[in-house]
C-alpha cells in the first residue's frame, strides 16, 4: 500500500510526455520531477504533458503546488499539462483544504487525457491563468 518512490521517470510518447507518480513522493523528489519535466520539454519540444496520479493516495498543498507549477512552467514552453486519474478521496480532501487548482486541466484517466490533447491541442480559454488561482472555500 505504501510505496516510497525515489525517482519518477518521464516517458515520451511521440510529442507527449507521460509521468506516472506511484505512491508517496518525498518533497525533494517532487521538486526534482518538476525540474525533469521542464528539462525534457526544453531539450525536445513536446505539445503535452500527462501526469497520472491515479496511484497517489495523498496530495497535500506542497504536491498540489508542484503540480500547478509543472503546468505553469510547461505552459511557458508551449506544452499543455493534464493531471489524470485523481482519486475521489484526494479530490474531496483538496477541496476541503482550499486547493481547487483551477488553472489545471484534468482528465479521468491517461487515455482520456491523451484524447483531450489530440482533440483540443490548445483549449479555447485558460480563464483562470496559468499559475492557477487557489480558491479558498472557507467554512
Amino acid at each position: 500500500m505504501w510505496l516510497p518512490q525515489a525517482h519518477v521517470p518521464v516517458l515520451r510518447l511521440d510529442d507527449v510526455l507521460l509521468v506516472a507518480i506511484q505512491g508517496d513522493l518525498q518533497d525533494k523528489n517532487a521538486e526534482r520531477l518538476q525540474y525533469d519535466v521542464l528539462r525534457h520539454i526544453a531539450d525536445n519540444p513536446a505539445t503535452g504533458v500527462v501526469i497520472d496520479i491515479s496511484s497517489v493516495e495523498v496530495v497535500d498543498s506542497f504536491l498540489g503546488r508542484v503540480l500547478a507549477e509543472i503546468a505553469a512552467g510547461a505552459g511557458l514552453l508551449a506544452a499543455q499539462t493534464i493531471v489524470a486519474g485523481m482519486r475521489p478521496t484526494v479530490a474531496i480532501t483538496l477541496v476541503e483544504l482550499g486547493l481547487t487548482l483551477t488553472g489545471l486541466r484534468t482528465a479521468l484517466d491517461v487515455q482520456s487525457a491523451l484524447r483531450m490533447l489530440r482533440e483540443h491541442p490548445a483549449p479555447a480559454a485558460r480563464e483562470h491563468g496559468e499559475r492557477g488561482a487557489y480558491d479558498n472555500d472557507r467554512d
Partner: peptide
C-alpha cells in the same frame, strides 16, 4: 451553495 460548489470543484479535479 457552498456544498454544491465543493462537489463541482472536486468533480473537476477528477476530470469530470
Amino acid at each position: 451553495a457552498q456544498h454544491l460548489m465543493k462537489t463541482v470543484a472536486a468533480a473537476r479535479l477528477m476530470g469530470a
